[in-house]
Simulated assay, not measured.
Amino acid sequence: MRAALLLLLGLAACASPVSSQEVVRSERAAFRVADFATGLERPWGAAFLPDGRLLVTERPGRLRIVGRDGAVSPPVPGVPEVVAQGQGGLLDVALAPDFAQTRQVYFCLAGAAGGGVLTRLATARFSADITRLEGTTTLLDATPAQSSGRNHYGCRIVFAPDGKLLLSTGDRYNDKMRAQRLDDLGGKVLRLERDGRPAEGNPFVGRAGVRPEIFTYGHRNPQGLAINPATGSAIEIEFGARGGDEVNRLRAGANYGWPLVSYGTDYDGSPIGTGQASAPGIEEPLRYWTPAVSPSGGNFYAGGAFPGWRNSLFVSALRTPGLVRLTMDGDRVVGEERLLWGRTRLRHVLPGPDGLLYILTDETQGRVIRLEPVN
């Protein structure tokens, strides 16, 4: 019995999650994983303040400020009201490009409207002491609202180099064809002015029966948006069904195929749309995964702490849980590496001002973990 107990303890130790003492060696770097902040409930989005503190959203509807020492603040007052059901809640947060002067922040969330729920873009301003939000305002609702289903909100925000705001919206799951309808804001990437109006130069402005906010369409559940610093291109990361997850370069007016074509199948194994992976007039992904990795947020790395990772696109994965590093040559994907695979569901990843990599874990007792280099 003693021998059996020792064996079980040894197996448990082998299966333990990665610790700050474990050195992980990747193709181009060696690092340790440290818990930077703990006690967060389903953290979803994050943005660094100019002073190095970190804003983190919790899906149930709270915003926290994480200090440079990892201390987590009480909930920040003044956040927009959310519908925290299913995959919905308070999702992404982004700083205005001129935050240092305006203290303006943007939120993407699941909001109630017209007896249903939809993806909503809202904005607010921090008080001068960065302790509370003031003047919270809805800028755009991704109509029509849907009375059933609480899935597929998309809900990632990024500012393009020209200052325009890009917002991803999901197809809301129950009616896949919303992604193809151009009078419907579901299943799209929208390009907006900072006040929520359609951005100047959008591809469908002035076309009858088409929403002028639309930049691209044919998306399922785009939970990642990032700007490639090497090219200025907008890159979208899309959660597929049973396979068919995608990384796409966004091109104005392009159709990305959902649900007409897909590299995956539906959850019951049935074909999606035509049953084909591609078709004329449909934009091809830069990268796709079958089987699925269930990607969520992603970001490019351009820091100094990990020179071998510069210009890599990091993608957080939920199932199989882990971190995907894509080696990029301009906007081409030329390599892939999987890190921390099978450890913990990861919701979002972003580089810090200190050059380190910060990752949100998708857990009830959620964390912000930090990758630190080992020489």
Rank of each mutant, 00 (worst) to 15 (best):
S73W: 12
R53A: 12
P75S: 14
D92I: 00
G70M: 06
A94W: 01
A71T: 15
G88T: 05
P43C: 05
F48L: 05
F48D: 08
V72Y: 08
R53G: 08
L63V: 02
D92Y: 00
L91G: 01
G70L: 06
I65K: 13
P43H: 01
V82F: 07
V79Q: 11
I65L: 15
Q87E: 15
G39R: 12
L54W: 04
L40C: 02
P50I: 06
L95I: 02
E81R: 15
E41G: 00
G52C: 10
V66H: 04
A71N: 12
R64P: 00
L49G: 04
L91T: 03
G45W: 01
A46W: 00
P80G: 09
R53C: 09
G45A: 03
I65P: 01
R68E: 15
P74H: 13
P74R: 15
R53V: 06
G39S: 13
R59Q: 15
G86V: 06
P43D: 10
L55M: 13
V83R: 10
V72K: 08
R59D: 11
D51K: 09
D69E: 15
V66L: 05
P50Y: 08
G70Q: 09
Q87I: 04
E58K: 07
P75K: 13
L95E: 05
E58N: 06
V82M: 07
P75F: 10
D69N: 15
L63T: 03
L63S: 04
R62V: 03
G61Q: 13
V76S: 11
E81W: 04
E81T: 14
D92G: 02
E41H: 11
L63E: 09
Q87M: 09
V83G: 00
R42M: 13
R53M: 13
E81P: 02
V93H: 02
V56S: 05
V83L: 10
P75I: 08
V83P: 00
G39F: 03
D69R: 11
V83D: 08
P75A: 14
V93N: 02
R68Y: 00
V93P: 02
G78D: 11
D51L: 09
I65Y: 11
R42C: 00
P75M: 12
L90H: 02
A46P: 00
D51P: 03
P75L: 10
V79Y: 05
D69Q: 13
A94G: 03
